[in-house]
Simulated assay, not measured.
Amino acid sequence: MERLRFASVEMFGRALPDDRVRDALRTALASSPADVSLTATVYSSPGEFVAGGDAVDVLVRTGAPSAGPAGPLALAVVEYERVLPAVKHVGEVAKTLFMRRAVREGLDDAAFVDRRGRFSEGTIWNLAFWDGEAVVWPDAEMLVGTTMGIVRRQLEQLGVSQRVQEIAVADLPTLGGAVVMNSWTPSVAVRRVGSVDLPQAPRFLELLHRAFEAEPLTEC
Rank of each mutant, 00 (worst) to 15 (best):
M148I: 11
L205W: 08
A111N: 09
V169W: 00
E156W: 00
E121F: 05
P199T: 12
A168L: 02
T123Y: 03
E121G: 01
G145E: 07
W137I: 14
W137N: 12
V144S: 10
E92V: 11
R163S: 13
W130P: 05
V151Y: 00
P202S: 15
A170G: 12
A170D: 13
V196Q: 03
R163C: 14
D131L: 08
V113C: 04
F204N: 07
V179T: 13
R203H: 15
I167M: 00
E206P: 06
V188Q: 00
D114T: 05
G91F: 10
D109E: 12
V151P: 04
V196K: 01
Q157E: 15
R116S: 05
G159M: 11
R153F: 01
W184E: 15
E105Q: 09
P202C: 14
I124L: 14
F119M: 00
L175A: 03
A134C: 11
V196H: 02
V83L: 12
L205H: 10
P186F: 01
D197W: 07
S120V: 02
D114L: 04
T146F: 08
P85A: 03
R82Y: 04
G91W: 10
D109L: 07
R116D: 00
E121K: 00
T147V: 08
V113S: 01
V169N: 04
G117D: 10
A111F: 06
S183E: 11
E206C: 10
W130I: 09
S183A: 14
W125D: 14
L84S: 03
V136W: 06
V103N: 02
A134R: 13
F112W: 10
V87K: 12
A94S: 08
R82L: 08
D197H: 01
V179N: 02
L175D: 05
V113E: 03
I124D: 11
E141R: 14
L198W: 01
M148P: 00
P186K: 07
W125Y: 15
G159L: 10
V113M: 01
F129Y: 07
F98N: 00
R100A: 14
S187E: 04
G122H: 02
M148L: 15
V190S: 06
F204L: 09
P199Y: 12
F119Y: 07
P173V: 15
D139L: 02
E81L: 06
E79A: 12
T174Q: 06
A170C: 06
Q200W: 10
P199C: 13
M142T: 14
D131T: 04
G106K: 11
R192F: 09
T185P: 08
I167W: 01
F204Y: 08
D171P: 03
P173Y: 15
P186R: 07
Q157T: 13
V90W: 11
R104L: 09
V179M: 05
A86F: 08
G132I: 14
E92W: 11
E133M: 09
R153M: 10
A178K: 02
M99N: 13
V164I: 15
T96E: 04
